[in-house]
Design a protein around this nucleic acid. Structure first.
Lengths: 194, 206
DNA sequence: AGATTACTTTCAAAAGC
DNA sequence: GCTTTAAAAAGTAATCT
């Protein structure tokens, strides 16, 4: 019934997750045993560890908690965590117990494949802000799901604040329907159509 | 009881002191920016409102006053960019922008986006161009709006390019550098907007 | 005039100032 | 609030050829 006359799509670009180990870590030891690590306690309490294969970056704290960023899927995230711990162990930094991994934020790119009248959208969407003098995108705080979207006139967007991938998909379809109903869709984008 | 009375007096005087300081800053910035009195009064009204709602806590008076002035200018459609206001304060643009968003959210105010048209008169006069240029530039901007090519673009850049074309059509060409300077954007931006406008206007440029 | 690089906006967590 | 990480969108900007 209220099917929208254009397709929508999205792609996860970055996942931020916390990893909790069951014991403390000796950051000084890790720094001396593993090369290419950045650790400046004066600047930031965590040490920065970069992985190549699954491209990811981890912030490691002495409490045994870490923040892993840069992966694009749960599979990559799990792979990265395993590799980080394996690297620690191989270099004489013992790690015991099973790590608790939790996704904290998902950043994704979205697209409704149609141009958007941001001026009009800013008027119809609650909790939105459009200030072209400061930023080209319209910033919208969606309540359900609870995410923030940066919407551009090209119809492309950025969705952030989600903890599950399904929220990203719902957010894109939600905004597409809202923009369509409010008459903010200008037309299909270059060579694309329903 | 005497103690309580003294505490209240201290609070009252601190609020008054803050307000007096804020009004001094408002006077200073208003003069430098040559703001009409009604904009200054609106800014003062917004500031008092913000103080009542407790929005000013922890933030510098200078940042809040600057944000208040920017908001008043937006409401009254007096073209003053955030950079222009920031230039005369000691705080950075990022902080003022943050206070501006805070004012919009907490006072639940909706402000229309800046119309590029509002920047035209100032640019035209700043270049000493004939008044006729204003009308031409505005027509160009309105055509651009109809064509839907203004989304996400800086209003000042659009206005600058429109005035550039208007001057050209009046046989009073100005360099993109001059236009960029009075409009507060870079030559690159004027050039980029110019190309788009020329295209939708069906203009040929060699 | 390009081309590059970089900065604007959004989000969340970590430990500590 | 700040510090550090990563990532996308599109616009603007600074710098170099």
């Amino acid at each position: 019934m209220s099917s929208i006359p254009f397709k929508t799509s999205y792609r996860v670009e970055n996942i931020v997750a916390t990893v909790i180990l069951e014991h403390d870590l000796d950051l000084e030891l890790i720094e001396t045993r593993i090369p290419s690590i950045t650790y400046k306690p004066d600047q930031f309490p965590g040490l920065i560890f970069r992985l190549d294969k699954p491209r990811a970056t981890a912030l490691v704290f002495k409490s045994g908690k870490m923040v892993v960023t840069g992966t694009k899927s749960t599979q990559q995230l799990v792979e990265a965590v395993k590799k980080i711990i394996k690297t620690f162990v191989k270099n004489g930094v013992n790690v015991h117990g099973r790590p608790r991994v939790q996704i904290q934020n998902i950043v994704a790119g979205g697209d409704i494949h149609a141009y958007v009248n941001l001026e009009k959208a800013a008027y119809h969407l609650e909790d939105s802000m459009y200030e072209p003098e400061q930023f080209p995108g319209l910033i919208h705080r969606m309540r359900d799901p609870r995410v923030v979207l940066l919407i551009f006139s090209s119809g492309k967007m950025v969705i952030t604040g989600a903890k599950e991938e399904v929220e990203v998909e719902r957010a894109v379809n939600n905004i597409a329907r809202q923009l369509y109903k409010a008459g903010c869709i200008v037309g299909p984008r270059l060579g694309e159509e329903e | 009881k005497l103690r309580k009375w003294q505490a209240r007096t201290r609070i009252i005087t601190s609020v008054e002191r803050n307000l007096a300081q804020a009004m001094n800053e408002l006077d200073r910035l208003s003069d430098i920016l040559n703001l009409p009195s009604y904009v200054k009064e609106e800014a003062a009204r917004i500031y008092r409102n913000a103080v009542e709602k407790g929005i000013v806590r922890g933030r510098s008076i200078e940042s809040i006053i600057a944000a208040t002035i920017y908001l008043a200018c937006r409401e009254m459609k007096v073209p003053r960019s955030l950079d222009e206001i920031t230039r005369h304060t000691r705080v950075n643009r990022k902080e003022i922008a943050r206070c501006y968003r805070l004012l919009l959210r907490e006072l639940r105010i909706k402000v229309a986006t800046t119309d590029p048209v509002d920047y035209v008169p100032r640019i035209v006069h700043g270049l000493g161009l004939p008044g006729q240029a204003v009308k031409i530039a505005i027509e160009i901007i309105n055509k651009a709006k109809e064509q839907g090519v203004t989304g996400g673009k800086d209003p000042a850049g659009l206005a600058a390019a429109a005035v550039y074309i208007a001057a050209e059509q009046l046989g009073e060409k100005r360099t993109q550098k001059e236009i960029a300077h009075v409009a507060g954007v870079t030559e690159v931006t004027v050039r980029n907007r110019y190309k788009e406008l020329a295209k939708i206007l069906g203009l040929e440029y060699e």
